[in-house]
Nucleic acid binder design. Structure first.
Lengths: 204, 204
DNA sequence: GAGTATACTTAACGACGTTAAGTTAGATTT
DNA sequence: AAATCTAACTTAACGTCGTTAAGTATACTC
């Protein structure tokens, strides 16, 4: 059995190597500027080798992005664990979300802005694509739920409020990513303002 | 001189024909699923002919999207002209913005979500790309300014507020476009909620 | 040592955006 | 009316892309 194990380990290593190369190129160049050929060249393998490890470019890029987005989920966990007031949790989580997007714009584009989606989304694509975005959303939702339970915010439907909140943080994130050279009043200030106004509106 | 005029008119006609074909394909298939070859085939010309009328695919698609986005600007004008209360103007403009995005998702992706932008944005690209997005924003800004002047909303910096508002409507629009199959609580309801909460927060 | 599975490569397909080098038809000139 | 020029359009090609099919060599099994 040790032979099979070694083989499996070696396969896993190359898979990791591909992921590493893809991650680096991808974070630097973005989805449409990374080709399978470039990734292959970076690790000194033939382009077709990658297909032995990943179904297609989409799956590879999504794996990379999912990995990255998992870090955001972890951050959410940390916030929930260390911050007591749910309103503060909400604020902190929102800030973390936006900062995550600005730190990893190319990952954000794939995960939350549909980059790399060509044709109509088939079922499995939808599943894997939605999963990470959906998981992030669910974290926000949990926090919102707590806020409502503790009567910190107006008790409209939790889902509606959560989705509205997601839309808000997504809006500022994606706008800043899409128009980096727009004369923003100041990114930090704007982010704070958007989140504050939203939370203020939810309290009222 | 009449010869030159006729020629110019004929050129204009073909240009319009290209734009028509591009618009139709583009609205139906989206940026990355429309090729110069397909557009050319649709109008029975060789692919290279298009390059006599448009610098590249980017310029062609942007022309199409600018045309469409101009309609939104006109709608804004109509709202400002017919609605008296600036807060109502704000609400109506926000709704029009979101509905515009949902009605023309592929145009919205190019204009407001950076679709079709490959390399780093050179100066003229930035200019033409930003122009329509920026013009829409300026309309919102004017309305916000009026709200502040009439003390309808809290008098923080007009730019900050306008940008925050843009982020909000963009957020809900782009999320709905990107995740059409997400279990939203109901698009109309959600849109209303997002805009209402934002305006509520601005009043406080 | 023969046979077989595994890991990888070479070669190719069809598509893409785009450019350079024709071609052709019409207008201008002589 | 013939020669020239010019504008509009096409053909052919380049280099790229994602992806598949067929081939090869290595390492393990028996």
């Amino acid at each position: 059995m040790t032979v099979k194990e070694r083989r499996a380990r070696e396969k896993e290593e190359l898979r990791a190597e591909i992921l590493d190369a893809a991650r680096e190129l991808f974070a630097k160049e973005g989805y449409e500027n990374v080709s399978m050929r470039k990734i292959a060249e970076k690790i000194d393998y033939s382009p077709t080798t990658i297909y032995l490890y990943f179904k297609d470019k989409d799956e590879l890029c999504r794996s990379v992005c999912d990995e990255t987005t998992a870090k955001l989920v972890k951050q959410f966990d940390g916030i929930v664990a260390t911050v007591s007031d749910p309103i503060d949790q909400l604020r902190r989580a929102g800030q973390a979300y936006v900062e995550f997007g600005l730190s990893h714009p190319n990952h954000y584009k794939v995960t939350f802005m549909g980059y790399g989606l060509t044709g109509p989304v088939d079922q499995e694509k939808l599943h894997s694509q939605a999963s990470m975005g959906a998981r992030c959303f669910m974290h926000l939702r949990t926090i919102v739920e707590k806020c409502v339970q503790q009567r910190k915010i107006r008790a409209v439907d939790v889902d509606t409020t959560s989705q509205a909140l997601w839309a808000t943080v997504h809006g500022i994130t994606s706008l800043l990513i899409t128009y980096p050279d727009f004369p923003w009043v100041g990114k930090e200030r704007l982010i704070e303002q958007v989140i504050d106004v939203m939370i203020e509106g939810l309290k009222a």
